[in-house]
Design a binder for these strands. Structure first.
Lengths: 187, 187
DNA sequence: CCCAGCTGTGTCACTTGGTGTCATGTTCGG
DNA sequence: CCGAACATGACACCAAGTGACACAGCTGGG
């Protein structure tokens, strides 16, 4: 049955990802070879690439799953709510949850190519959110683009400030949203 | 003499970049091998890597040179000028100039890995600008981070809107800067 | 003038990420 | 219990880099 096979498939994938993450944190992304991961997990290099399209993808599993429902959360906000406020509420929640995934995040942050990949995935997510926001509010494409991009920027800046000062992360997100509120969000 | 050698070195590099760009636009980045470029330019694959650390770098030459002086331009703005306005003036100029480099940009836009790399380089540039802005205005690190990030976002949004609508590019940059002006830019 | 040394280049071998192919084992449905 | 999917491993292969080494050409000094 497909369902059962699907379950074991995810199990292997998770196992592989866990092994990979462990090796990456210990030695660094570039210092670990796909063969290393595969052997440590007891499979062949070829099989690794049957579960992940690329070495990089072994790191992004958890991050992606979290991203899935953000767009729907945006779509589910009350219709009369300020869009900028909707973004703030949903994304600060997300930022808090991402904190838990900090081990993967640390690996990503310390590896340029992974940082680039993360940004790419985040850009895709932003486009989804923009669409959801447009559907909910009836705003034009340019405006939702501006709003969601500004929100993503707020998260970035909060993350960097957290890195600089170590202050409370959720609070930093709030501050960043306040200080970055774009002119077009207050009509 | 170092000067002469430096000149020929740049010449070879430019030649290599030109050949590469031609092949990339004709066949696409992934469909061109380093061996192809090297052979087309009459050198060995090994020599290609003596001029560029990676295949990707053969595309970024012009973009990098343009980036060089932006930070100094920011630093050179009058001290009493609104920081957000400084950013707008310098970056709209840059956006106009980048238009000329459209062939390389087209290759970059149509290749995910190059897009990611461009973003990475732009992030480095943003950090430079942030530093220059901090030095000029005495603002704290968080604030200049917010301002420069918002400015970068404005450029992004303008570029995407240009892609959607085809309106005038410089004008779009102005509109994006106006609509995205962050709360913290107006004290 | 000639030799010593530096520099740029080509050649070759090697590592690693990633893919296609095939043969074999394993599992599931009838 | 048998045949058809399916998962896996083994192997060959390609392309991006990298390191080592040999060789040419220019350069300067004696």
């Amino acid at each position: 049955m497909a369902g059962l096979r699907e379950r074991t498939r995810r199990a292997v994938q998770a196992e592989l990802a866990a092994v990979a993450l462990e090796l990456f944190t210990a030695r660094g992304f570039d210092e670990v070879t796909v063969d290393d991961i595969a052997r440590a997990a007891g499979v062949s290099k070829r099989s690794f690439f049957r579960y992940f399209p690329a070495k990089e993808d072994a790191v992004f599993g958890a991050v992606e799953i979290m991203s899935d429902d953000i767009a729907s959360q945006i779509a589910g906000r009350p219709t009369d709510e300020d869009p900028w406020e909707s973004l703030r509420l949903v994304l600060r929640e997300w930022a808090a949850r991402i904190d838990a995934e900090s081990q993967a995040l640390r690996v990503i942050e310390s590896t340029p190519v992974l940082r680039a990949r993360l940004h790419q995935k985040r850009e895709e997510l932003r486009a989804q959110i923009a669409e959801a926001l447009a559907a909910r509010t009836g705003l034009d494409a340019f405006t939702v683009d501006l709003l969601t991009s500004a929100a993503a920027t707020a998260l970035d800046c909060a993350a960097r400030e957290w890195f600089r000062t170590g202050s409370d992360r959720t609070e930093l997100v709030d501050v960043a949203f306040t200080r970055l509120r774009p002119a077009c969000a207050t009509p």
